[in-house]
Amino acid sequence: MSGNTGYAEIAKYFRQQITDGTLAPGDPMPTQKQVREQFATSIATVNRAFQMLKAEGLTAARVGQGTTVADRPRIAATASARLRRISRTGRPYGAREESIEHTADLLSCADPDVADALGIELHDEILVRTRVFVRNGVRTIAAFSFIQPRGWAAVPETLSSEPMGRFWQEMYTERTGRETTKLPELSGARLASRKELEMLHVDVPPYAAVPVLVLTNTFHDEDGPLEHWQDIYMPGLWRPDEE
């Protein structure tokens, strides 16, 4: 990226690096002079980009250290960003990120939205996999994966609560010859369930209403819906604009 680059593009570039974990919490940012030379733009443009990143809570100024990535950036990677990172770098996690508390259960689908996304009848049996993303010691996302029966029939490894080690849909394609396609990522807000609050360790009274950001992704193969994801963000976190 170079030549008359605007401040928003520069901010987006470093925002993605922070989200991906290429720049980890506490890492020094390049100097404004280095960024100016990298993007062949003015120092005023670079300064405005740095101001945007600071305003978003992604960076902080430290005496004697210059600008660094914030210790706890108020941002969490979207599922689409995670998939792009895996494709680009092969890394399933960003810097200082991990997933914990993995579960896998065959359950009756009681959620009309999930049933609709998977193209099944309410109360049909589905596989529900869950995990919690943690970054720099802080819980960021409660992640749910709802999988059609033909998915776990082809890849029975998904029935184990152990981490897969690779994206299970790759194994599905290898074994069935069916390619999968992700529909556009959707975002919305709703009140968190008790289970979601427990996964995120949000301690509030039982009657409290806690709004959360929810991102959904649905995957299809030639036979229809295969998998549906729901990512529930810790209150106070937000997703980056990745368009």
Rank of each mutant, 00 (worst) to 15 (best):
Met1Ala: 11
Ala8Val: 14
Ile10Val: 13
Tyr13Ile: 01
Arg15Trp: 05
Gln16Ser: 08
Gln17Lys: 15
Thr22Cys: 04
Gly26Ser: 10
Gly26Gln: 12
Asp27Ala: 15
Met29Asp: 09
Gln32Leu: 11
Val35Cys: 09
Glu37Pro: 04
Thr45Asp: 04
Val46Lys: 09
Asn47Arg: 15
Arg48Val: 06
Ala49Pro: 11
Met52Glu: 05
Leu53Trp: 10
Leu53Cys: 08
Gly57Asp: 07
Thr59Leu: 07
Thr59Ile: 12
Thr67Ala: 07
Thr67Gln: 13
Thr67Phe: 05
Val69Cys: 13
Asp71Glu: 15
Pro73Cys: 06
Ala76Val: 12
Ala76Met: 08
Ala81Lys: 02
Arg82Val: 11
Arg84Gly: 03
Arg88Gln: 15
Thr89Ile: 11
Pro92Cys: 02
Tyr93Cys: 06
Arg96Pro: 03
Glu101Ala: 14
Leu107His: 01
Ala110Phe: 01
Asp111Arg: 06
Asp113Gln: 11
Asp113Val: 13
Asp113His: 09
Val114Leu: 00
Ala115Gly: 08
Asp116Tyr: 01
Asp116Trp: 00
Asp116Ser: 12
Ile120Val: 14
Leu122Gln: 13
Glu125Leu: 04
Val128Cys: 03
Val128Phe: 00
Val132Gln: 02
Phe133Trp: 08
Arg135Asn: 11
Gly137Val: 08
Thr140Leu: 07
Ala142Val: 03
Ala142Ser: 15
Pro149Asn: 05
Trp152Met: 01
Ala154Phe: 00
Val155Ile: 13
Pro156Gly: 03
Glu157Asn: 03
Leu159Gly: 03
Ser160His: 03
Pro163Asn: 07
Arg166Ile: 06
Glu174Arg: 15
Arg175Ser: 07
Thr176Glu: 02
Gly177Ile: 08
Arg178Trp: 03
Glu179Cys: 07
Glu179Asp: 11
Thr180Glu: 01
Leu183Tyr: 01
Pro184Cys: 06
Gly188Cys: 05
Arg190Thr: 12
Ala192Ser: 13
Ser193Asp: 08
Arg194Lys: 13
Lys195Phe: 05
Leu197Gln: 05
Leu200Arg: 09
His201Gly: 07
Val202Lys: 03
Pro205His: 06
Ala209Leu: 14
Pro211Met: 02
Leu213Thr: 15
Asp223Trp: 00
Gly224Asp: 09
Leu226Asp: 02
Glu227Arg: 01
Trp229His: 13
Asp231His: 14
Asp231Trp: 07
Ile232Val: 15
Tyr233Ser: 10
Trp238Tyr: 08
Arg239Phe: 13
Glu242Thr: 14
